[in-house]
């Protein structure tokens, strides 16, 4: 069990209202990802849920029980920190066993659980090592092991993969998703990595300056961003946001078109642009263009598209995938 409800949660650090007011409902077993730019309050919100920070106002309920003033350990949550926060003088075995030892579990039961966790996480060969003798990915797994032996009602992750290299990040991402499928435990995951958010989440919470901009499944956010901020934040490369005559013609203040919804051609199209930078990735080609009458735009072609700096390219938007926003930045429903 691990349903978490935040009601009017506020956090001020002195004068700074870091979290003005947040309401959020997390269902049991959900994988929820908090995304947002740096300083948007993702970590703060997570720490409030964990009990590592006191609330300025509002209530937090876990499984129907008010835990607003409960100590971190009493909430039944486990957290994986960005720095892993392993205990440096303890072996891997002792690190993983620590929460069980604190819960005064019998040694035989502890050993069994530690072995089982080590097995799941491929750590069996490293149990007698110290954290300093492990690689980043192994440390990460120890931190996860320490979290899973407690059988918490929810896991909290604060950018757990940001210290790993790209390849390892990919593997660990899969491992964590896999873990979620096995355990079916609620997970709250903080990241500012687009790919992690889109691939892992059941539900994404987009934060901006401590406010929730939108909550929804990855595809909801991609297909129907509620406002300009979400439109610009979700999706990589970013959505092209056009103001001026084109938007006006479509009955909006701002019109948004994603790079992948522009058709590229060397002969003809709606817009004519000059390539400033071309990024050839093999599977994709990203073109950054200077478009006449509009300005900077980014377009994505699948596969190789032979264009280089200075070339002239024509763009045609797929107008069925156009996003329209009013003067307040809110999406206009079709």
């Amino acid at each position: 069990m691990g349903s978490i409800t935040l009601k009017n949660v506020q956090k001020h650090f002195g004068e700074a209202k870091v979290i003005p007011s947040v309401d959020l409902e997390i269902k049991d077993g959900e994988f929820v990802v908090f995304v947002g730019p740096s300083g948007s309050g993702k970590s703060t919100l997570l720490r409030l849920i964990a009990g590592l920070e006191d609330l300025t106002g509002g209530t937090i309920t876990i499984d129907g029980k008010d835990v607003t003033d409960a100590a971190p350990a009493a909430r039944g949550l486990a957290m994986v920190f960005q720095s892993y926060a392993l205990y440096p003088h303890m072996t891997v075995r002792k690190n993983i066993a620590f929460p069980l030892k604190m819960a005064k579990m019998e040694q035989a039961a502890i050993d069994k659980k530690v072995e089982a966790a080590a097995n799941v996480l491929n750590l069996t060969d490293y149990l007698e090592r110290r954290p300093s003798q492990l690689s980043g990915g192994q440390r990460q797994r120890v931190a996860i092991g320490r979290a899973i032996v407690r059988e918490p009602s929810a896991f909290l992750f604060d950018e757990p993969l940001s210290n790993l290299d790209a390849a390892l990040r990919g593997t660990m991402r899969l491992e964590i998703s896999d873990l979620h499928n096995q355990l079916k435990t609620t997970m709250i995951y903080v990241t500012h990595d687009q790919i992690e958010a889109m691939t892992m989440a059941d539900k994404i919470v987009v934060l901006n300056r401590g406010n929730i901009e939108q909550v929804g499944s990855p595809m909801e956010l991609y297909l129907t961003p509620r406002n300009l901020f979400v439109a610009g934040f979700i999706g990589s490369p970013r959505m092209n946001l056009l103001t001026g005559d084109y938007a006006k013609a479509k009955g909006a203040t701002t019109a948004g078109i994603r790079p992948e919804h522009l058709t590229l051609s060397k002969e003809s199209g709606t817009w004519k642009g000059r390539v400033t930078v071309a990024e050839h990735l093999g599977a994709d080609t990203f073109l950054h263009l200077d478009v006449e009458g509009i300005g900077q735009m980014t377009a994505r072609a699948s596969g190789e598209f032979g264009a280089h700096h200075g070339d002239t390219v024509y763009l045609t938007p797929d107008e069925t995938r156009l996003h329209r926003f009013d003067d307040k930045g809110l999406a206009i429903k079709a």
Partner: peptide, 26 residues
């Protein structure tokens, strides 16, 4: 490291246990 302290706190170590298992070795 304050995150280590917080991790121990979440692991259910009270002040006394944190002192024994974290502070003294450190």
């Amino acid at each position: 490291d304050s995150e280590q302290r917080e991790a121990a706190e979440m692991d259910g170590a009270n002040f006394f246990n944190r002192f024994i298992y974290l502070t003294i070795p450190h």
